[in-house]
Design a binder for these strands. Sequence first.
DNA 1: ACCTGAACACCGTTCAAGT
DNA 2: ACCTGAACACCGTTCAAGT
Lengths: 219, 219
Amino acid sequence: MAGRRRWSTEEILDAAAELLRTSSADSFSVRKLAATLGTDSSSLYRHFRSKTELLRAVADRILLAAMDGYRPEGDWKQRITSLALRVREAFGQQPQLASVWGRYASSGTGSRLVMEEVLQALRASGLPDEEIPVRYHRIVVLLAALIASEAGVSTVTPEEHEQGLELFRVAVLGADPERFPALAHFARDVRPLGVDRRAAFEEILADHLAHIEAAMPPS
Amino acid sequence: MAGRRRWSTEEILDAAAELLRTSSADSFSVRKLAATLGTDSSSLYRHFRSKTELLRAVADRILLAAMDGYRPEGDWKQRITSLALRVREAFGQQPQLASVWGRYASSGTGSRLVMEEVLQALRASGLPDEEIPVRYHRIVVLLAALIASEAGVSTVTPEEHEQGLELFRVAVLGADPERFPALAHFARDVRPLGVDRRAAFEEILADHLAHIEAAMPPS
DNA sequence: ACCTGAACACCGTTCAAGT
DNA sequence: ACCTGAACACCGTTCAAGT
């Protein structure tokens, strides 16, 4: 797995993407990346000013790969939905990447492809031009937030998961019906934040897009 | 600021909340907390099994404080909105707290108060009982994601912010109009993810609530 | 000119040894 | 019984000194 001296920026990014893909959840570090390249972490700092800059570049590269083979299909809502699922899939288990993307997006071709497709889909929706930038902004803020949040959930270990469920059960089932009547009433049906995230993602996005459509002037 | 030996769990939580409030963004650590208490970090591990458990307890306590003096006002949408703004304000600049809450909520009184109020507001909306738990789940997932994402944005330093804006400008203004026609068309109006977050938060939530209302069976 | 060893200033967590 | 010093196994980042 390790080679010897002189790595191009490209090769470093590829190795980083690979390491992020295979290393679990949270545990990516500059030092580990250097180790898999058979070099010292200090030499990576000639290629990148900081870990954030490195992650930003990797995020873009991952978006680029995720967009490979993408073809717009269906109406504007279906286009945005399938794009969103691709981005979600790409960042799925990687909170570090997802949150760096959510903080500032990135600036390479991958990001541009995503922006372009959302904007094109919104244009195809028949929304007036002047409403598109603000709708675009909300959609991408929403996507980035949901994806990063879900990626964060994926870092929870099985024991922590079990412990979290148990705490939730206690909080809900143990709630005093005098003080928390609604909570007591729905105790058996209410779900903790960490479960059913994929369904929640799709439904929240669908709701959001449906709302845009409903607010559209009739064409 | 530092006292001497034997701290109760309560006192530790208070000190942690205070330190999180005053320390900027990301920089809270168990060791710093111990230092402000005049003790060693190892002694805190008798009160908490892990940093996550500590943060979970602090998050609940902060929600509790945020709910202090809360009175439901207006219709169900206004109730959820003002609650959401309180939670947002409470976790505002604290990505560590916001993301620990988003991963599993917490299980104390603070969390229960938030759950109760959302459920009560949804009941007041006239939504049929069987739809309330799923609507509840989506609303809280959405809130937690947006709040954690925004808190993450707040960790960006001014230089990084400037650098991010510059990268965004280059990505957008420098996009080839042949390959990215929609991006080129909206280049001057499209905003990066890191700006206007408060407005985006309120509008995404308003859209979401309006959509629930629109999908409601006429009473 | 390029690279890197070693260091700086941190982390969360554990546990043997002390009081 | 309670507490803590010291250690373990890490971090991101810098920079003098080497090749």
